[in-house]
Simulated scan of single mutants.
Amino acid sequence: MSLVRAERRRFFKRRLTRWVFPIGVLLLVTIASILFAFHSKPTPEARARGEATAEAMYQDQVREYERYKRECGDKCNDGGWTGPQRSDFRAEHYMPPSFDFKAQYGELFLVWAAIMAMVAFLLGASFVGAEWASGSMMNLLTWRPKRMKVLGTKLTVMLLSVAGLSIVALGIWTGILWAAGELRGTTEGLTPGVWQSFGLSALRGLGMILLFAALGFGLASIGRHTGLALGAALAVVIVGQVGLTILFQMIRVPFWEQYLVPIHIFAWMNKEMKLVDYSSPEMVCDTAGNCNAPELLITWQDSGSIALGLVVVVLAVAFWQMRRRDIS
């Protein structure tokens, strides 16, 4: 049996794979089902009720504005405001929510990517960590003594398997959301450009999932135990995120949010993330005299470069350690 086939079989036969992936899919199905249940397709009756409510709200605001003008008289200074506008009171604002696939599907890629990234991290860490903890790695190296090839094959098989599972999960996720659009909203406006944008978002999501899988794999390989990868993840969440947030707020570090992992995840998936430093004593003014708080733009290239660099370093240490350390 080839090494690739043996590793692929080992990956899918593991109990953690059989449990964690279905749990991840179940979470996605649950969230998509809730979205399906809480949306409804707009009907003529619902639109008529929405129009009636919008008109009633508009008339109520007009009466309030006229009362304000009468009481205020010449003392009023409304900055040129002419009162409520009917165009601001749309029927859609007073109708039960409907699921617009075009508008909402792109925003929901983050849900799929985040859940599958957690699944991928666990699968990547346990795939190699369990081998070290159980002694299977030593037995495997007796059969295939080329350490670098063995670890590289494990990493490749794991990444390809995680990619396949993530695509399956995306298909299930997309199918339920498409049904929500068809039965509980609309799927109109899906041009080739929109589908291309969806495809690019899916690729960024898949890239994030694979980076988390590789990170878990590398950390567990360095520590020769799944627990090290999980401990490192816990330390990042508790110490590196909560602790740094409190510290940076206390000492007023400019744009302290840029050091938080979720910010970079948002920037990666949404292509950019704008941070505003409201605590800064210095204001940025333009030629017209308009002043605003300083801003920092984080792009998906910035976040991707940081994440890729971190994963490359972790994997480099893992492979170097595999080559240099004794297997015992």
Score class of each variant (00 low, 15 high):
Gly171Tyr: 08
Ser201His: 09
Gln196Ala: 15
Ala235Asn: 08
Phe266Asn: 05
Leu140Asn: 07
Ala48Asn: 07
Met269Cys: 03
Met322Val: 04
Ala293Cys: 00
Ala56Asn: 11
Ile265Tyr: 13
Gln241His: 12
Met1Pro: 13
Trp132Thr: 02
Cys291Ser: 04
Trp19Val: 15
Met269Glu: 10
Val237Lys: 07
Leu215Gly: 06
Leu110Lys: 08
Asp100Cys: 08
Leu160Phe: 14
Ser98Arg: 06
Ser221Asn: 12
Ser221Asp: 10
Ser328Val: 14
Ala232His: 09
Gln249Ile: 02
Phe217Asp: 04
Glu92Gln: 14
Ala232Val: 15
Ile251Tyr: 11
Val150Lys: 02
Gly199Tyr: 03
Ala113Ile: 06
Pro281Ala: 04
Ile298Asp: 00
Gln104Gly: 05
Leu123Arg: 02
Ala52Tyr: 00
Asn77Leu: 10
Gln321Leu: 09
Pro42Ser: 00
Met118Gln: 11
Phe12Ala: 05
Ser134Ala: 08
Thr287Arg: 14
Leu3Pro: 06
Arg325His: 15
Ala37Asp: 10
Met273Arg: 13
His264Asp: 09
Leu28Glu: 03
Arg9Ser: 06
Phe266Gln: 09
Val261Cys: 04
Met273Ala: 07
Ala235Arg: 03
Val317Leu: 09
Ile238Trp: 14
Ser33Tyr: 12
Ala54Lys: 00
Arg90Leu: 14
Ala91Arg: 01
Asp88Glu: 12
Ala220Lys: 06
Gly80Ala: 09
Glu64His: 10
Val150Trp: 04
Leu3Phe: 07
Ala133Gln: 15
Ile265Leu: 15
His39Gly: 09
Lys149Tyr: 15
Met148Arg: 14
Val242Lys: 08
Leu260Arg: 03
Gly216Asp: 01
Gly129Cys: 01
Ala56Trp: 06
Leu151Asp: 02
Gly231Val: 09
Cys76Gln: 11
Ala202Cys: 02
Leu315Thr: 00
